[in-house]
Design a protein around this nucleic acid. Sequence first.
RNA 1: GGUCCGGUGGCAGAGUGGCUAUGCGGAGGACUGCAAAUCCUUAUACGUCGGUUCGAUUCCGGCCCGGACCUCCA
Length: 458
Amino acid sequence: MILRIHDTYQRTKVEFVPHDATHVQFYVCGPTVYDYAHIGNARPIVVFDVLFRLLQRLYPKVTYVRNITDIDDKINARSAETGEPISEITARTTAQFHEDIVALNALPPTVEPRATDHVAEMIVMIEDLIAKGHAYAADGHVLFNVPSWDEYGRLSRHSRDELVAGARVDVAPYKKDAADFVLWKPSTKNLPGWDSPWGWGRPGWHIECSAMASKYLGDVFDIHGGGQDLIFPHHENEIAQCLCDKPSEGFSKYWMHNGYLMSEGEKMSKSLGNFYTINELLREYPGEAVRLLLLKTHYRQPLDFTKSGLDEAKRELDRFYGALRGLNVPRVEGDPADAVVEPLTDDLNTPLALSALHASLRDLNNVADPDAQSVAAQSLMRSASVLGLIEQDPEDWFRWRPANAGGLDDDAIEDLVRQRTGARSAKDFATSDRIRDELAEAGVVLEDKPDGTIWRRG
RNA sequence: GGUCCGGUGGCAGAGUGGCUAUGCGGAGGACUGCAAAUCCUUAUACGUCGGUUCGAUUCCGGCCCGGACCUCCA
């Protein structure tokens, strides 16, 4: 099966030809750990999780590297602001991040390197860049010299002149060229720092991904991913660093970038405070609804993330889990349906894949024979798994309730259901309906099936 | 100013040079003690102005609107 992806370098869809067909390797820029991850962070996590799942179906071995950025001036600023030690901020935030994305059913990457563990590699790369004439030390800083490399700007399609003309910040006096960017900068004694040939200091932002990608994936690998906003300057600079360091190698063969997010119709902005953190959404909605909402839009399209969208995603999942509920079909390994995989091989067309999943659901709902049901249900589940959906126990899905939700607990509900069942068998429909109304009031919906009554939280 | 992306039915959202996805919601029907769930049926669409074409929502151009990026925000 041929995989086609949109390559940012070429700005077009291309056939994916791995560097090594027995072992596909890709790198995605992970979070900077200073605060709760927001929904904008969740999109690349979910999108590239689908890519990971798909690649695992198509190739024998896949290595997925996603870093944790735990050196950053935002972290330092947060620590200065709150007094919490940097190591505690990063440890706490990393743990929170992991907890959040597990709820989104994202598989762990193969390797999750942290910047602080790779400063030595960064220093080596910086030394090489200086030796090769692409970087220079000045005033305790080391800077990458942009005019030293002709190809600079190829990914983002910016020329050096445009960049300088459009610059929003003053040019630091130690820069040879206005477009030069920092590889290493000095630290004061109350900031995180490491000994280096240029004194006590810390790395610039871009060098960490270059160093970690090279370390875990080698000098050439297949795909580098991230949010669209990383194209410039982050990825542009990563490319410059790696290709200048190892001119004969290719670095990443393909680049994939997910589109930006809006929130409730407005652009997300920290100053407006109108972004949702994953954590706060998880108190109100199941993580799977968040995941589905993100996958309902193609990854390169803009996506307006809304709570009404989450409500809709949850209703959709109710249908899937409702069809599987009570079937007790075991999960077995097997191939997903082509109708679901094929759209994914066309640049991760998740909306089209989801429509095939809905067709599969209809098929399941249209069969009555238990054997046929079992076959249809397994097919549905296997297909959904490529998207990381419908992987939980349906009972758990229907019993999920928001954090701090009031109302009835499971035992209280089941007690009322039993009372109602008694009333119904006595043909006391007045009592039966009264109990139904009472439960409905508490957000519980009943379904009378031939073999008994089941309930769910609506 | 530069670079780039998008505008599809009430909403979400694919896709295609002619056969007009899918979902949510709405309407009608079947089923049900009543419901719910499910199934069936159904309505409503491609920003705007031109061009190419036998034919354009789909290709080309102008315009309008929205958004992103332009030195550290996914």
